[in-house]
Computed example of a mutant assay.
Amino acid sequence: MMPEAVLTLAILGVTIVLFVSDRLRLDVVAMMSLLALTLSGVTTVPDALAGFSNPAVLMIAGLFIVGAALTDTGVADWPDLVLVAEPDAPSAVFVDRRRALAAVGVTLGMLVVMAF
């Protein structure tokens, strides 16, 4: 196997372990892996930065921003508080949380589509 491929797989493995362990923030881990690939010479600086102009990357970044805003303001907790009638009943909590998550998911999807 070529040395660049082995190095890329090693960096990918470390990145996956750091993602799963959740010891560092996800954006920090992603930037560290991008920096490692660039500094090791696997990719060039223009190629590494070209990914930031991809609409999918911008959409995911927008989702993180909207999700953080909804969590910080408490809007993400509101459906759970409104829809759960009896918090002690496990079946009611499960069904109501599924409905709440579906409503939030549809709303977030529409917001992202409208933003772009």
Rank of each mutant, 00 (worst) to 15 (best):
G74C: 08
A89R: 15
M1N: 11
F64K: 01
T73P: 00
G67T: 04
I60K: 00
T43L: 10
L24Q: 02
A10L: 09
P90V: 12
S40D: 03
A30S: 06
T107E: 00
A36Q: 06
L111F: 00
G67I: 05
D22T: 08
G67H: 06
V75P: 01
L7S: 12
M114D: 07
A76E: 03
V6A: 13
E86L: 15
E86A: 15
A61R: 03
V82Y: 12
A68R: 11
D47E: 12
D96S: 15
A103P: 03
V106K: 01
G13M: 02
R23D: 00
G51L: 06
D88F: 11
A89K: 15
A76V: 04
A36K: 06
A102D: 03
I11G: 01
R23N: 04
F52P: 07
A61L: 11
A76Y: 05
P87E: 09
R98S: 14
D88G: 14
A5D: 13
A76C: 02
L49T: 06
L18P: 00
P55N: 10
A30N: 02
D72T: 09
G67F: 07
V20T: 05
P90E: 09
V57K: 06
L18E: 01
L101K: 07
L101V: 13
A69R: 00
L83V: 11
L111A: 07
D77E: 15
V45C: 05
E4V: 06
A115K: 08
L63T: 10
F116P: 09
I65D: 08
G105D: 02
M59Q: 07
M110I: 09
V75A: 12
D72E: 12
D27A: 04
A56K: 10
V17I: 09
V57S: 07
T71R: 11
A56M: 09
G51K: 05
M32F: 09
G41M: 09
V20M: 04
A5L: 14
L83M: 15
D22S: 13
L111G: 08
V66H: 02
A61Q: 01
R99P: 06
R98E: 03
I65R: 05
L49A: 08
S21Y: 04
L81C: 11
P87S: 13
P55H: 09
V95P: 11
T44Y: 05
A10R: 09
A48E: 03
